[in-house]
């Protein structure tokens, strides 16, 4: 049976950029374990001969012509921003490197 430990939940929350408190970890980890045990029932059910379905309808080649369409105005683009400076989105200092 797969196990999703409290530490693993903490790690996943970190990957998902959610600052879970200890209380939240205590609360969510056991619930996630129950859910995981339930969904894990499908492991190994379908073999290599079964193709995966990522799109419910089999469509291909949906393209757009390379023609410019109107953009938002900068005012519209920035209308929901928590902080704006010089017509740009102002964000706190960034720790990591660019990818």
């Amino acid at each position: 049976m797969p196990e999703i430990t409290r530490d693993e939940v903490a790690h996943l929350a970190d990957l998902a950029r959610i600052d879970l408190s200890d209380a939240e970890l205590d609360h969510l980890a056991p619930q996630l374990q129950v859910i995981l045990e339930s969904v894990a029932s499908i492991q190994g059910l379908a073999g290599d001969d079964v193709p995966a379905t990522s799109h419910p309808l089999p469509m291909t080649n949906v393209f757009r012509e390379d023609v410019v369409t109107p953009s938002l105005t900068p005012e519209q683009a920035l209308s929901g921003a928590p902080a704006v400076e010089e017509q740009r989105f102002s964000v706190p200092r960034i720790l990591g490197d660019e990818q």
Partner: peptide
């Protein structure tokens, strides 16, 4: 998990 779920979908 995800790969298997997509097969179940099929």
């Amino acid at each position: 998990y995800y790969g298997q779920a997509q097969k179940i979908r099929t």
